[in-house]
Simulated scan of single mutants.
Amino acid sequence: MPQLYSKRAFLQTSLTLLAPVAASLWRGQCSYAQPGEFGTGDAIPRDVREMYDRGLQFLVKSQQENGSWIDQQGGAAGTGMAIMCFLASGEDPNFGQYAGNLKRALRNMISQQQPDTGYFGGSMYVQGFAMLALAEAYGAVDDSNLWSGSPNARQPMIGQSLELAVRAAVTSQKKNPLGAWRYSPDARDADTSAAGAVLMGLLAARNAGIEVPDESIDKAIAYYVKMTAPSGQVAYSGGLGGFDESLARISIGTLVYAVARRKDLPQYQATLKYLTDRIDGGGSSGHGGVEYQLYYQAQALFQGNVEAWEKWNKNLVRHLKGIQLPDGSFRGSYGLHISTTLSLLSLAVNYRFLPIYER
């Protein structure tokens, strides 16, 4: 295991005591440290902590022995979202109260990967979210005993699975004349929603120390540039004539520009302005579910304008508090499992423990 593992694993072990330090040193990049109040339990509103803990308890109780979830949709993507929810809590992933849940979930997700292609199946949405979860777990979860007691003949480590997943995404992109992704790994068209899921997975993998070709990131960003109007609106597929007010797509565009460190682009400034001008509401998700919008909107605003995010986050907390069910789940457009994980991850920005949530 590379040196990156030992450093990040040590930091994760002491995360609850050294959260501000861990947030800045997780990948040895002190220049990206958070302000002192970020990432500490004391700064997290009580309502957020209570909602998040209840949501995690729902995931614990509804997880099956094989690591998947009752009412789960999305295959490896649904499992990956739950993995990120546990990691985002700040509990030690190797010895904390959710360590067993994480281990079973990781085994379940990795088992769904095709060993010859690295594809997780389902769609490139699934590929993107699975990659993102693996990247967040890589180096934080000690996988030396991940497969202990498992009858699974194929037992790859997290890093091996992540490298294979990255290779599959890059191979798919090379087949695509638009330099992006859609549902099928062999697609020759693209859309900004599926492409956003894959690109965020690649960016997270690169941040975790996995080799991702610069050309792959550049081509994907170029696709987003073409799909972004001067107004800041982001088209779904087809470009000109396909722009409308989809805060989900605009949030995805803002987020990928920010995490790819392309805040110099006028398209980034346009999408961010569009979001910040509308933080009090308005706009449809453009994807069939508001929780999908909130998941991306939380990250985009936090990456782009912390003051705007703080104002928006208060409304988010109020909204989610009003719709959380007694068992800790959130009812939404995608079934209890996906709706709950997306809702929790939109709250997880308050914790700042996931590396992809660092600014």
Rank of each mutant, 00 (worst) to 15 (best):
M1Y: 10
P2Q: 13
Q3M: 13
T13H: 12
T16F: 07
L17A: 15
A23T: 15
A23C: 14
L25E: 14
G28H: 11
Q34G: 13
Q34R: 13
Q34T: 09
P35F: 12
G41M: 12
P45L: 08
R46S: 12
R49S: 01
Q57H: 14
Q57D: 14
F58P: 08
L59A: 05
L59I: 06
S62E: 13
E65A: 15
G67V: 12
G67S: 11
I70N: 11
G74I: 05
G75R: 07
G78C: 05
G78N: 06
G80A: 12
M81F: 10
I83S: 03
C85G: 03
F95A: 15
G100T: 09
G100S: 09
R104E: 12
L106N: 05
R107N: 03
R107M: 05
N108Q: 06
I110R: 07
S111Y: 00
S111A: 14
Q114R: 07
Q114G: 05
P115W: 14
A133Q: 04
L134M: 10
E136M: 13
A137Y: 01
A137F: 04
A137W: 04
Y138S: 10
G139M: 01
D142E: 05
D143M: 14
G149D: 06
S150D: 15
N152G: 02
N152F: 09
I158A: 06
S161H: 06
R167V: 00
T171C: 09
T171L: 10
S172D: 04
S172F: 02
K175I: 00
K175P: 00
N176Q: 09
G179K: 04
G179M: 02
G179S: 10
A180R: 03
S184G: 04
P185V: 00
A187D: 15
R188E: 15
R188K: 14
A190M: 06
D191C: 10
T192F: 00
T192R: 05
T192D: 08
A197F: 15
V198C: 02
V198W: 02
M200A: 15
I210D: 02
P213F: 02
P213L: 11
K219Q: 13
Y223M: 03
A229V: 03
P230I: 08
S231V: 02
A235G: 14
A235H: 04
G238F: 07
G241N: 13
D244P: 01
L247R: 15
I252Q: 08
G253H: 01
G253K: 04
A258C: 05
R262D: 09
K263H: 03
L265N: 10
A270S: 14
T271N: 11
L275S: 11
T276K: 13
D280A: 15
D280C: 04
S284V: 11
S284G: 12
H287T: 11
G289N: 12
G289P: 09
Q297C: 03
A298L: 01
Q299V: 00
L301M: 05
L301E: 09
F302M: 12
Q303E: 10
W309F: 13
K311L: 07
N315K: 15
N315H: 11
H319I: 00
K321C: 07
G322A: 13
G322I: 01
I323W: 02
Q324E: 10
D327L: 07
D327T: 06
F330K: 00
S333D: 09
L336F: 05
I338G: 00
T340S: 09
S346I: 02
A348Q: 03
N350G: 04
L354Y: 02
L354Q: 04
